[in-house]
């Protein structure tokens, strides 16, 4: 009897495996979280030094429009005004997302609802291929094709927000398209069947049922696209002109946080004001992507048709 008792009270092999599996998977997750915190710590420890060690006023950093950390600005403090870059980054991200979203969603609907066969055969491989093109190559095509096009059509020198928008549009299109298509594919089949059975046309089904059900997924797709646009450095840097001026219009040279960051980081010495100021830009990048995420999450929660799967 005791033997049976013992074997019944003992943990089964399966439950041991279960415990081990849970621990393994949890530690993987913990590792990722750790990495995020490490990055935050590193970036913040450098980025905050601008304000604590070099005693730059936070407000003058965010609202100043002069950027030349080596010299003194009009107010006697070092000229570290990041506003032109912040405006540039925001403008370029929003413009390219606005431009890319209708195209991406249209294509995704086509891929999933209208002609899945062609979608799978042509569109999907092409979009997946494009994700692998290095941003440098996009930048160079931008330089050779987009900049002259913008210069001849819209005037100006061709370098500016508009050229950056076009380049980013092409860059984020594949990502947003394939993620939107995933979101649409995840909408259960019976939603469509129910709608069609009620006598709705295909378009009505798409518009009134499928798209609504896929809103959170598609919003995520757009955020991913925006995040990529926001953080893109090498391609944008080639076509935006990198002038730390507030853009007057869409064709005047401007700059983004990333472009100034990549250009400057190699030319500054760790620990100096110039270097710290660049890390502060990196910190803004971090905080702004955090902000984006939270906003979209909020919208996603509100726009959700139903929660259960």
């Amino acid at each position: 009897m005791d033997k049976i008792r013992a074997s019944l009270l003992k943990k089964s092999v399966a439950s041991k495996i279960e415990r081990r599996g849970k621990i393994i998977s949890l530690s993987c997750l913990a590792l990722i979280i750790l990495v995020v915190f490490l990055i935050f710590y590193f970036v913040a420890s450098r980025g905050l030094a601008t304000f604590f060690q070099n005693h730059i006023n936070l407000w003058s950093f965010l609202s100043g429009i002069q950027w030349n950390p080596g010299t003194l600005g009009t107010n006697g403090q070092p000229a570290v005004g990041a506003l032109p870059m912040i405006v540039g980054s925001f403008l370029i991200t929003i413009c390219s997302a606005l431009l890319a979203t209708p195209f991406a969603i249209g294509t995704a609907v086509f891929m999933t609802e209208i002609s899945p066969r062609r979608g799978a055969r042509i569109l999907r491989p092409v979009t997946e291929l494009l994700v692998g093109i290095p941003s440098v190559v996009y930048g160079f095509i931008g330089l050779q094709v987009v900049v002259p096009f913008v210069r001849n059509t819209f005037g100006g020198s061709g370098y500016g927000i508009l050229s950056g928008t076009f380049v980013l549009f092409v860059m984020i299109l594949p990502t947003v398209t394939s993620m939107s298509a995933d979101a649409l594919n995840a909408v259960p089949r019976y939603y469509r069947e129910a709608s069609l059975a009620l006598g709705a046309t295909r378009w009505q089904t798409i518009y009134k049922v499928v798209l609504r059900a896929a809103i959170p997924g598609m919003l995520t797709a757009v955020v991913f696209g925006m995040a990529r646009a926001f953080g893109e450095a090498l391609a944008v840097q080639m076509v935006i002109g990198n002038a730390t001026l507030l853009p007057h219009n869409l064709v005047s040279p401007a700059s983004t946080l990333t472009s100034i960051l990549t250009m400057g980081i190699g030319n500054t010495v760790m620990g100096s004001l110039q270097n710290n100021a660049l890390w502060s830009l990196a910190m803004i990048l971090l905080l702004m992507s955090l902000f984006f995420n939270l906003v979209i999450r909020y919208i996603g929660r509100k726009g959700k048709l139903n929660n259960e799967r």
Partner: peptide, 28 residues
């Protein structure tokens, strides 16, 4: 050229006699 780049420093010192150039497009 980018702020802090060696080429720009040399150019500003010896071609522009130490004048700082105006805000403009930059490449690295």
């Amino acid at each position: 050229r980018a702020q802090g780049s060696g080429t720009r420093k040399t150019f500003e010192s010896y071609a522009l006699n130490g004048h700082k150039s105006a805000e403009s497009q930059e490449q690295d």
